[in-house]
Design a protein around this nucleic acid. Structure first.
Length: 367
DNA sequence: AATGCCGGGCT
DNA sequence: AGCCCGGCATT
């Protein structure tokens, strides 16, 4: 799958091209997305932009003023330094406004391990390291090009390009703020206990709800609590910040068949909460909600909304070319997510989600 | 064969 | 509503 995930890596070779002092005025190097050799070569300052050969048209905005300021200069005149500072500020500014937090997959950028799970809004890691721009690139194989002169931004997206990022940043900020504040609420039905320590909450869930502390529940309790902040919880129905609703949106059946499965699994098994919390919250909510919706017709459950919100654009976009499915009686194919049955095994059926136990569509690891 | 889950039945 | 399972589709 071409869901390339370029991490904004600046390899030393890229950042420090072995050039002479004439670089000062002549060349500005643009590092982005592991692009092999994106180079701004202007005989007059700031003139033309050389995009990498073979870059698909439209994938890159035409004039991308992204430069890694100071990346190529060793010796500079004071004016040059000042200029670079200005440019650095501009770069930072534009990066922080980069609309490309979620862009269509770039063409062959890095052969690097592409985990499309990172496309999910909460899943991308937010590096707070000093390397500005790391996060934004990481977030979505993004061309970091934030040019104000870009004429054709994400026209496909119906919203102003900045908006997505702002919402996302807002979300992240809230998340991290929440974690800083450290309030955790147990989501176990009819429990709702609130603790201010994550460890304590884990222990609570283990002891009270998971019945002891075997190793497996180590991960599982993540499903059963959520970070909360003093503010009220964000209203779930807000439109997906990063992901467009795929062609399936018109259908009430969650045909997304996208990768939140991997996502869910990843969040459940790879790493701690900070990543898994939001999706887990949704999952656990849907799971419990299932009991309410169980014997109704499956119209649009919260889980399905979750699914639609989180279905990875890469997949849904590639699939979108498939023949239109107007009627929703299409039976969902098997997702690639591990379901409770696989995860826990038949012998631990009591740990399955309710839906799985009832041989219904799994709510803990939705496709 | 194993898995996922729809449809439907039972309590 | 909660629970279970036959049976089918998919892998």
């Amino acid at each position: 799958m071409a869901a390339v995930q370029p991490r904004g890596r600046l390899s030393p070779a890229d950042t420090r091209p072995a050039r002479g002092p004439e670089d000062d005025e002549g060349l500005i190097y643009m590092q982005c997305c592991g692009q092999e050799d994106v180079e701004l070569r202007d005989s007059q300052r700031g003139a033309s932009v050389y995009l990498p050969a073979g870059s698909s048209e439209g994938a890159w905005p035409s004039a991308a003023p992204l430069t890694c300021a100071g990346s190529s200069n060793s010796f500079r005149s004071p004016e040059s330094v000042e200029m670079d500072e200005i440019m650095a500020a501009m770069v930072l500014t534009s990066l922080s406004c980069s609309p490309r937090v979620h862009s269509p997959p770039q063409k062959d950028l890095l052969p690097a391990s592409s985990s499309s799970g990172d496309m999910e809004c909460g899943g991308g890691e937010l590096s707070d390291s000093g390397s500005s721009g790391y996060w934004s690139w990481d977030h979505g194989s993004a061309s970091p090009a934030p040019s104000p002169s870009v004429t054709e931004m994400d026209g496909s997206l119906g919203q102003p390009p900045d908006e997505g990022l702002h919402m996302e940043l807002d979300y992240e900020a809230r998340r991290y703020k929440g974690s800083g504040k450290g309030a955790y609420r147990c989501l176990w039905p009819s429990c709702g206990k609130v603790l201010n320590s994550r460890v304590g909450m884990k222990r609570h869930i283990q002891l009270h709800h998971l019945g002891g502390g075997s190793e497996h529940s180590q991960r599982e309790e993540d499903f059963y609590y959520a970070e909360i902040s003093s503010e009220e919880e964000p209203a779930p129905p807000s439109p997906a910040p990063t992901l467009s609703i795929g062609p399936w949106a018109s259908c009430s059946s969650p045909l997304g068949a996208s990768t939140p499965g991997t996502l869910a699994s990843a969040s459940a098994f790879s790493t701690p909460l900070s990543q898994s919390a939001p999706s887990s919250v949704w999952q656990i909510h849907t799971e419990h909600l299932y009991q309410v919706l169980a014997s109704r017709s499956r119209s649009v459950s919260v889980g399905e909304q979750w699914l639609q919100r989180n279905s990875a654009p890469t997949r849904s976009q590639t699939i979108s070319a498939s023949p239109s499915r107007n009627h929703c009686t299409f039976r969902k194919g098997r997702g690639e997510a591990k379901k409770c049955r696989k995860v826990y095994g038949v012998e631990r059926r009591d740990q399955w989600c309710t839906a799985c136990r009832w041989k219904k569509a799994c709510q803990r690891f939705p496709d």
